[in-house]
Simulated scan of single mutants.
Amino acid sequence: MVMKVSKNKVAVSILAGIVLVLFFATVAGLFFYREMIKDLGTAQEEDFTEYPRLYAYIAEDPDSQLSSRIYKEISEYAVENNCYVEMTGQNLSTSYSKADRMNIAISSKVDGIILEGDDSAETAELINKATANGIPVVTVLSDCQASARKSFVGLNNFSLGSEYGAELAAIGDLNKRYPLNALILLDRDDGNADDIIHAAIQQAVTGRLIRLNSAVVDTSTPFTSEESVMNILDGLETIPDVIICLNDRTTESAIQCIVEKNLVGKTTILGYYDSDTILKAIDRGSVYATFAIETKTVAKQCVNALNEYHDTGFVSDYFSSNYVLINRSNITEYQTEEKEDGI
């Protein structure tokens, strides 16, 4: 006897089978999704580290090479010492002034501020405001003496100026070119620090046949810096024998300008900082020598100063950092050491 099954029953059976398969597939998918979310949460928990102290680093120019290098060293050293440092204002579409970034840090109630200082009344007022809110401030590279900052980490600018003067005299002795004409390019925004270096250079070359002149450069952006240096050189009746630059941006601008104006060999540069551009220029002869700050030392001193103040309530008023003179006689050795240090 042959059983007859209606088409409706077959369709229902097939549909039930499909529903059952979809049900189990959905359950399996939900289980897999839950496990994936749990694993992701575990990974996020493992990657997340909470630090007891948060510091802010506020640079004069957040996008400058020197400030970026110092921040890199500070942030790495801070993590090793159980604290965290954020750099305010770097790589943002909107540009915030240093005063704005100070106010942001104060409003955020950070545990400390590392600030590239200046001698303006506004900066002193903001440092005092931070101090009144229980936030210690350490200045770096440039100081703000008329403020309640806890410590200053930086070079001895007078000593640096004396070294510039010694190198300037060495150029004169090497080339037997007297009187030697030198132009010092001052940063429009660096104020007192550049003035001290200028005075020290002047004192170091007193009694020698060296004529010093100076001009102020707008270093607010790489473009304005290069344009400003070019305008200064175009306005001179005689190109100086030596151009003295006191920061990284001015040095690179001067290099570019003397190359574009075909002045290599007719003038030389005493620079500041150790970027690839500057080191290559030493190799090629357009830069006689450059001074580089020991950024690792600066980073350690900044973080240690804030930690020491938090731990003891006291900290030294001044930490002196060293600089390195780089010229053709030691550039290969210097570059080798930098590679070994991973810089």
Rank of each mutant, 00 (worst) to 15 (best):
Y33S: 02
R34W: 04
R34S: 11
M36R: 03
K38V: 05
G41I: 03
G41D: 12
T42S: 12
A43S: 05
E45S: 10
E46K: 11
E46S: 09
T49M: 15
E50G: 02
P52L: 06
R53Q: 15
L54G: 04
Y55S: 12
Y55N: 11
A59C: 04
D61E: 04
P62A: 06
D63L: 03
S64N: 14
S64R: 07
Q65D: 12
Q65N: 13
S67M: 15
S68Y: 07
S68W: 04
S68V: 14
S68D: 09
R69C: 02
I70W: 03
I70S: 03
Y71S: 00
Y71N: 00
K72M: 07
K72C: 01
E73Q: 15
I74C: 13
S75L: 03
S75F: 01
E76V: 02
Y77G: 10
Y77F: 15
Y77L: 10
Y77N: 06
N82K: 02
C83Y: 07
C83I: 11
E86K: 10
M87I: 02
T88C: 02
G89L: 09
Q90Y: 05
Q90P: 00
N91M: 10
N91I: 00
S93V: 13
S95N: 08
A99W: 01
A99G: 02
D100N: 11
D100C: 06
N103M: 14
I104E: 13
I104A: 10
A105W: 05
I106T: 04
S107T: 12
S108M: 14
S108A: 15
D111V: 10
D111G: 14
I113L: 02
I114D: 05
I114V: 08
E116Y: 05
D118M: 13
D118H: 14
D118R: 14
D119S: 15
D119M: 13
S120H: 14
S120I: 08
E122A: 15
E122M: 15
T123R: 06
A124V: 07
E125G: 04
L126N: 11
L126K: 13
L126G: 11
I127N: 11
K129D: 11
T131R: 04
